[in-house]
Each structure stands twice: as structure tokens, then as C-alpha cells.
């Protein structure tokens, strides 16, 4: 699977309601260890209802400068959410479907990764 095929794909819930598009994929480096780095497993997807393109991730960090870029970009990505891999039911070429009762998390990075 090539990630570029997944980015921008429409995301629907179990009832077929469109929730947005895949804006990003989040990985966590905690998989099987190797000589240099451990495996980076797919933690989940960032879904954005308005725009799937992301510019420097202002909507996922706490930066406020340079005004007004962060404010504008956060507004552009309003309603974005993060969904865990466990809540993904179908990964298709044209659509991603979430499981019934999926949990929407904040897409913000927690600071333990890179910001």
C-alpha cells in the first residue's frame, strides 16, 4: 500500500455519511525492533472535513505565530479529528469507512513526538 493513494481519500462512517478526507497518517515508532529503528506502525488517520492538504501542521500544534497564518489554517481545518487504526473498518481505493461507534480524538500532537 502506498500512502499517497490514501491521502485525500473520502472518509465515511458506518452509515455512509461523509466525514471528510484523509489529511494525514500518524505512525508511532514502537513496533518490532531492528538494528537502527523499530517498526513504525500506523496509529491512525487524521480526517479533515474541509481540506485534506496540510501546511506545516499548524492545526496540530500550539504555535500562534506568525499571525494570522496559524489562525487561518486552524480555521481551514476546523472539525478535524483523529481516528485510531482499530476504528477503521475498510481501507479502499476510493473510500475509507470507519467502524460503528468509532471514537474521534483530537488531532493535536501531544508534544512527545515532534512539533
Amino acid at each position: 500500500m502506498i500512502l499517497g493513494d490514501l491521502l485525500g481519500t473520502p472518509v465515511h462512517d458506518d452509515d455512509g455519511v461523509r466525514l471528510g478526507r484523509v489529511a494525514d497518517a500518524r505512525f508511532v515508532v514502537d513496533g518490532a525492533p531492528h538494528r537502527l529503528m523499530a517498526d513504525a506502525r500506523l496509529l491512525g488517520l487524521v480526517v479533515s472535513p474541509h481540506s485534506w492538504s496540510s501546511f506545516m501542521g499548524y492545526e496540530r500544534n500550539s504555535l500562534t505565530q506568525p499571525w494570522p497564518l496559524p489562525q487561518l489554517l486552524r480555521w481551514r481545518h476546523r472539525g478535524s479529528f483523529f481516528v485510531m487504526w482499530e476504528d477503521i473498518a475498510v481501507l479502499g481505493d476510493r473510500s475509507v469507512r470507519l467502524r460503528r461507534g468509532y471514537t474521534a480524538y483530537s488531532p493535536a500532537l501531544d508534544g512527545s513526538g515532534q512539533e
Binding site: 489529511a23 505512525f27 506545516m56 501531544d110 513526538g113
Partner: peptide
């Protein structure tokens, strides 16, 4: 536990 990486970022 591990480092988080957003693909686009």
C-alpha cells in the same frame, strides 16, 4: 510509548 510521526509533517 514511541516517537509519533505524522507522515505529511
Amino acid at each position: 510509548a514511541g516517537q509519533t510521526l505524522d507522515a505529511q509533517l
